[in-house]
Nucleic acid binder design. Sequence first.
DNA 1: CGCACACTTGAACCCCCTCAACCCAAGTGG
DNA 2: CCACTTGGGTTGAGGGGGTTCAAGTGTGCG
Lengths: 249, 249
Amino acid sequence: MTVGSPNAIVIIKTRPADTCSHCDVRHRSVCSAIDAEDLSRLASAAVQQQFAKGHVFIEEGQPAHDFFNITRGTAKLFKTLPDGRQQITGFAGVGHFLGLAVSETYSFSAEAIEPVGTCRFSRAKLLTMLGDFPALEKRLLETACNELVAAQEQMLLLGRKTARERVASFLAGRLQETEHGETKGDSISLPMTRAEIADYLGLTIETVSRTLSKFKADGRIATPSRDGVIILDPHWLSEVAAGHESALA
Amino acid sequence: MTVGSPNAIVIIKTRPADTCSHCDVRHRSVCSAIDAEDLSRLASAAVQQQFAKGHVFIEEGQPAHDFFNITRGTAKLFKTLPDGRQQITGFAGVGHFLGLAVSETYSFSAEAIEPVGTCRFSRAKLLTMLGDFPALEKRLLETACNELVAAQEQMLLLGRKTARERVASFLAGRLQETEHGETKGDSISLPMTRAEIADYLGLTIETVSRTLSKFKADGRIATPSRDGVIILDPHWLSEVAAGHESALA
DNA sequence: CGCACACTTGAACCCCCTCAACCCAAGTGG
DNA sequence: CCACTTGGGTTGAGGGGGTTCAAGTGTGCG
């Protein structure tokens, strides 16, 4: 909830010219589009920056001076209405590129929901690099297209799915993401609070909690800890998530 | 509702090499990124194709062989759930580029809601052109970013806005779009049915109808014809659309 | 004229929200 | 060690916004 720099823990250090070549998350991000020999140029445009949990490092409506690449932790991307209603449009994990926009101002806000590490690029420098590295532009286009597809899927969820289906879709999505990283059974972690899940799914905290409790009571999931969930019935979950609600008990 | 080619009116004619240079909607589309001298190459990759109202010319899940550029009319882009629930993710008007996706299959469907004219590009040809014309790629990236911003705005609408605010946002959005084209007062046209508006806003036909009736009774709008709306109180409309609901009567 | 289709309007219902109490774990300080 | 606080989560009871079901109203077109 902290805004601006006053009470936020922000560590800035300029990166030596070869930092990018040692970056262990480069292959997961758009930076992988840059050849090894050009990495020093990339590194010269990047600044490492850390944000404490709760820090809002992108604010809707503010001038879009920088782009960010997440190297650690998770951030929530959201928009708010004047009276405080909030819609989370996505969670950005490691490798996620933030700030894609033509506009001069950010169209959304971003807040660290756990300690977050980023590479910050000045908008101006990155835009000039775009012209020099067509592969980077291609990569960004791919990224944008993928996000667009995800956004359309989320619109379907928000506009037409029931609370059950929304929560099931959320869990199923998390499961798919984590399995991509490492195949470690059907256990997922939820770094975000119930309030954030609710704001992501267009529901209230209570409905999210009740729905999870119902899933648990029905033996579809188990909740060993607050932020851990074990999917006991992945097939049922994906069926519900896909909208085959009436077909199953 | 017609699917495939059987009972749909589809006229295909190959374009002569200079058709693009005579295209009167080129400046409104991504094609404007191609220089005049390269237009013949663009034309050779394009096929003009017309679709009757109701024809589904892109089907979710089918192989994405082609891209389309709308030259006339309006199409609705939508996703559906197994039981028929439908979410319209957007309306594509003249100049809109369809098919932006990395995937091998379409992630959404497209249906002409009025007679539609398109330029169809083979996916393969366009992808090779991308490499040759960086400006085209840049233009596509811009387009994708703009759509992403619009998608996030729509997520806010679907997840957090009331029915009043949704309908107000829809009308306000239409007003803004048409004013960009021609400043002709505060009159807008609605080429789509109430059902399509409902599927776009995540509501039912009845709620859309009732809300419009309420706006009319309150003197905020007038409805001279079925598909025509006159905005009598644009300021009030934009305030409601922005979520300042309680501040106004 | 009469059918089809889109839209409107009314009444009853229900899913989810609101409000409220309570639980639980992790501090924190005496 | 315990009392107290705080933040996140759960659970219950009641209410409301939007849906569902149903009937009625144009309106274009054969």
